[in-house]
Amino acid sequence: MEILYFFAKTGFYATALVTLAAAILVVTLRNLFHCALALILSLLGVAVTYLYLKAEFLAIIQILLYIGAIMTLLIFAIMLTHRLTDRSVSQTNRQSLPAFALLAVFNIFFIASLAAVPWKINSASLAAKIDTQALGAFLMGPYVFPFEIISIVLIIALVGAVILGRTDQ
């Protein structure tokens, strides 16, 4: 069994590396369509990370909603505006160096402060099993008010997108 846990842990770090590499490709590639493909790989890595955190329902939702719906929308928009996203146009502004320096300082500060925090690990929650049925019961129980608010937000956003997207007056 010990060897299985070793392979599982190695798999987590490999997934994290692939996710970060794909994310770097997303922000550096010139062709936006290739960026979208790298973003799909990165989102898949995040879904695998959800599996390592024992959130199976969210991993499925991540694949269905992010990769299935949002990325389809993004690729649709990239293809509709493709004449402006080809190689001849520069894709980055002149803020690369300041942004990189700022984020390096931010990361160093954050990692240094993270190492100083003693987290109190709650072993009961670590072992708890949250399946889809339990999530549904919580959504319809203590969290029913935010659930209703989020459905109103969703319907408003969809109506707004339809109004913005129509061409004839």
Partner: peptide, 28 residues
Amino acid sequence: FSLFLFSIGLYGTLTRRNVIGILMGIEL
């Protein structure tokens, strides 16, 4: 891991000129 992912997304949001590229950084 999530700190690095956030930083990469923020870098993309700050440096992209294309609005769709900025949206991709926000998704990250």
